[in-house]
Amino acid sequence: MKKIALIFLFLILGSFFDDSNSIQKEIINGKVVAITDGDTFKLLKKDSTLIKVRVANIDCPERKQPFSKRAKQFTSDAIFNRSVQVEVLKKDRYGRFIANVYYDDKKNLSKELVKAGFAWHFVKYSTDISLQVIEDKARRNKRGLWQDPNAIAPWEWRSNKKNNKKQ
């Protein structure tokens, strides 16, 4: 029991001294000019350059998957043709900026999509445990895609499509 307590203490203390917490994240302000799908959009920066942004920590239904159009519409209603603040976490292999997206007095788009039931918490790429709490509540309340008791996560949908093509 003492070992577990010590390990826990070291983990907590380590987070206070972790240099990665002090890294300055890039903040980009711009106007949303196109919605690709529920979790991806194009942003026109103040210097007139166009970038593609992928909303961090979540995954919305894929095209042709149930609730895909509703997720895209939710994102469009929330941010299309509006100014947003993008907190860049990294770039992905496709050159998209993976980012936290803030709009309307600091609303977090990831959390709003999950709360409405139009996105999964993408646990594989996320350390934001608050998103899981929000998803669990949306599931219990059968919001959005959680009305379907057999909802298929987008990463499983993509994997199934890829496996079907191989056969």
Rank of each mutant, 00 (worst) to 15 (best):
F10Q: 05
R82P: 01
L109M: 09
F80E: 07
D47G: 01
L6H: 12
K42H: 12
Q24D: 09
W120R: 03
G14I: 11
Q24Y: 08
K107V: 08
S110W: 02
K45V: 02
K69W: 05
K72M: 15
F67G: 04
I51R: 08
N29S: 13
D39P: 02
T75D: 00
E112G: 06
D39Y: 02
V55R: 02
S76R: 14
L6Y: 13
Y94M: 11
V32F: 03
E26W: 04
Q24P: 01
V84A: 00
Q65H: 06
D92Q: 07
A119D: 02
E112P: 07
T40Y: 01
E62C: 06
R54F: 01
T40I: 05
K115F: 10
I7H: 09
I27H: 09
Q73Y: 12
V55N: 06
V55H: 03
I28A: 08
F16H: 11
N108D: 13
C60V: 03
N21E: 13
K46G: 08
I79M: 04
A116W: 05
D105K: 13
I7S: 10
G95E: 09
I7Q: 12
N108S: 09
L50T: 15
R63D: 14
F74E: 07
F118S: 05
V55F: 01
S76V: 05
R54A: 08
F17N: 12
R93W: 14
F8P: 01
A56L: 03
D18W: 11
G117R: 08
Y102K: 12
D37F: 00
N100E: 11
A99D: 02
D18Y: 14
S68V: 04
E26K: 11
I79F: 03
K72E: 14
T49I: 08
K115W: 06
F118R: 04
